[in-house]
Simulated assay, not measured.
Amino acid sequence: MPKLEKSLPKKIRKEEAFRLLEIAYNYPYTKKYLKYRNHAIFSLFLFAGLRKSELLHLKMTDVDLENFTIFIRKGKGNKDRIIPINSNLAKSLQRYLVERKKNYKTCPEFFTSCNLNQGFTNSGLKLLTNKLKEASGISFTIHKLRHTFATLMLEGGCDIYSLSKMMGHSDIKTTTIYLSATAEHLRAQIIKHPLNDFVT
């Protein structure tokens, strides 16, 4: 069978990612809890590249803000992995945890329902995604945010091996597709060539 060509992963622009996080934080929610929880959710997608199922199954014991790490249990392919997190993400998660405690949430799931003491659900995340799509005017899916994370990491200088580990890819070839997605970034970099100013 001939190999089917892989299309480039769809992503949102860096400016759109900033805007999405801004709106997740500043949306006129009815409760402060929603502001901090929803910003933490979208920060995790954009700063750590989690899959939807990985975020929904995240437990309190999986998040270690002292050591700036997140433990993903039984990700795709039933594999565990550890993802390092940066200070921006840690700050967002910490804010949420303070609010979570104030709201007496004691269930083992990291992200919880606003009104109930139970884990945030897939349908809840779907409703939230639709709300933020409408408010921001940005067309995105959770998977598109994962692709955005991968592309931004490469553009920021992350090596392909490290990214592969963070994404939880069993084969590094899966990660290399993101190299093509950074062509736009490469075009912007080529103007830095030292001979560009040389005129014959």
Rank of each mutant, 00 (worst) to 15 (best):
A150N: 07
P108T: 15
Y36H: 11
S87P: 04
N26H: 15
F42N: 09
L128K: 08
L46A: 02
Y27E: 10
L93Y: 00
K79Q: 14
Y96A: 15
K74E: 12
G75S: 11
D62T: 07
Y27Q: 05
F120H: 01
M167T: 06
F47T: 05
I70G: 03
K35W: 03
K59M: 08
Y33T: 04
E99N: 07
R37G: 06
A90N: 07
A48F: 07
V98Q: 13
L50P: 02
Y161M: 15
P84F: 15
L152Y: 08
F71T: 08
T129C: 07
K165R: 14
S162F: 08
L58N: 00
Y29I: 07
N26G: 09
R51T: 04
Y36N: 05
R73K: 14
Y27V: 05
L97R: 15
E155K: 01
T61A: 11
E99V: 05
M153F: 04
L93R: 00
L163D: 11
D62I: 08
V98R: 14
I138D: 01
S162T: 15
L58M: 10
S113W: 00
M166C: 11
H57G: 08
I82N: 15
K102M: 12
K74G: 08
S92K: 07
N38V: 08
K59F: 02
K102I: 10
S164Q: 08
H143Y: 00
K102R: 15
